[in-house]
Simulated assay, not measured.
Amino acid sequence: MSYLDTTADVYRQAAQEPQVGLCCTTNPVWQLPGLSIPKRMLAMNYGCGSTVNPRDLTNSPTVLYVGVGGGMELLQFAYFSRRPGAVIGVDVVDEMLEASRQNMETAEQENDWFRSEFIDLRAGDALHLPVEDEGVDVAAQNCLFNIFKADDLRRALQETYRVLKPHGRLVMSDPTCEQPMSDELRADERLRALCLTGSLPLQEYLNMITEVGFGTVEVRAKRAYRVLAPGHYATDELIYIESVEVCAIKDPMPADGPCIFTGRTAIYYGGEELFDDQKGHVLMANQPLAVCDKTAGALLALGRNDIFVSPSTFHYDGGGCC
C-alpha cells in the first residue's frame, strides 16, 4: 500500500464518520451575510487554514477546489460565484464526494440563495486533474499538498498551473516546519496523511511553487499549528509546526526571478518628496509601501540611511510594489 492509499483510507473513514479535529484549522470560519454552514459540513472542515479570500473572488470566477472534505469551502466559494458549475470540486475518495454531495443538499435547504447545481463534483486527483487547460480562474487546496512527497508535489503544482488561466490564482493552506524530522517520522504514512510529517520548510515550499512557473507569490498568513512532542512521537525534541496561507499567481516570470511577498515594508524618510529607484519603485516620503523580498533586498543593498525596510511579517494583503 502506498502513502496515497493510506491517505485515501484515512479520509474515507473521515467521510463516513465526521472527525472534528482531524485537522486543526487555525483561523475562524468565515461568517458571511446570509451564509449558513450545516453542522455536519462544519464538523468535516479538514483544513489547517482558509483559502477563501474575497479579493480573489471578484467577477464571479470559476473556481477549482481539490480535496473537497465536507464541502465547506466549496459552499463559501459558491457564495461569490452563484451560477451553475461555477465551483468544481475534485476528490479521489468516492465516499468524500458523496458526503459533500449530501451536505450540499442540506446547505440548499438552509440557504435561500444556494443551489446544489452551483457545485460540480468530479472524481479525480490532484496529480491528474479532470479539468481542461486554462479552464479556471482560481484553484485552491487546503491541507492537501503537504501530504505529497516531492515528485508528487511537483506534479500537483504543475497540474494546477496547467488548469489556471493567465494571471489566475492558486490559493493554498498547508503546514510548514523549519526543524528537521527523523526518518521514522517522515516514513510514517498515517502521520503524513494527518498533515503532520510531510511539512516542508517555508522557503523550500515557496521554491517548489516558483519552480513550476508562478511569477508572483504572496505569503498571506503564518500561524501556530501543532507540536510533535517527545514521548508521543519519534522525536528527541519538541517539533513546532506552523500553517501558512499562500497565493501563487500565474504571472509571467520576471527576468530577475519571482516576486515573493512575505510581508516586508519599505519607508523612505529622507528630505525629498519621494525616492525613485529608477526600477519602477517609487517611495513617497513617510508612506509605507509593501515590497517583495527581491525589492527589499535591492533597497537594502543601496546602503542608504533614509530608507527603512522591515523584516518579514509573513502577513501580506496586497498593495505591493510589483
Rank of each mutant, 00 (worst) to 15 (best):
Y3G: 03
T6H: 05
T7C: 06
A8E: 15
V10M: 06
Y11R: 11
R12A: 04
A14S: 09
Q16I: 05
P18M: 04
P18K: 09
C24H: 13
P33G: 03
P33A: 07
M44D: 09
C48S: 10
S50F: 00
N53H: 11
P54V: 06
Y65R: 05
V68H: 10
V68F: 00
G71W: 06
Q76M: 05
Y79A: 02
S81Y: 05
S81G: 03
R82S: 12
R83Q: 15
G85E: 13
G85Q: 12
A86D: 11
V90F: 01
D91T: 03
D91R: 08
M96G: 01
L97T: 03
L97G: 01
E105R: 14
Q109E: 12
Q109S: 05
F118E: 11
F118G: 04
I119G: 03
I119V: 05
I119D: 04
D120F: 00
L121W: 08
A123Y: 10
G124E: 13
D125C: 09
L127V: 08
H128Y: 06
P130K: 10
D133N: 12
E134A: 15
V136N: 14
V138D: 11
N146H: 08
I147H: 14
F148Y: 15
K149Q: 13
A150H: 13
R154W: 01
R155D: 08
R162W: 01
V163R: 13
V163W: 02
H167Y: 09
R169L: 04
L170M: 07
S173K: 02
E178Y: 02
E184A: 13
E189K: 11
R190M: 05
T197Q: 09
T197I: 11
T197Y: 02
G198Y: 03
L200C: 04
L202H: 09
L202C: 03
L206H: 12
I209K: 14
E211R: 15
G213F: 00
F214Q: 09
T216E: 12
V217N: 08
E218N: 11
V219M: 02
K222E: 13
Y225N: 15
A234T: 10
I241F: 01
E242D: 15
S243I: 01
V244G: 03
K250N: 07
D251K: 10
P252L: 02
D256Q: 12
F261K: 08
A266S: 05
I267E: 08
I267V: 15
F275S: 06
Q278H: 14
G280T: 07
V282M: 03
L283F: 03
M284F: 03
N286Y: 10
N286F: 05
V291M: 06
A298I: 02
L300I: 10
R304G: 02
I307W: 06
F308S: 14
H315M: 07
D317L: 05
G319D: 12
G319F: 00
G319P: 04
C322M: 07
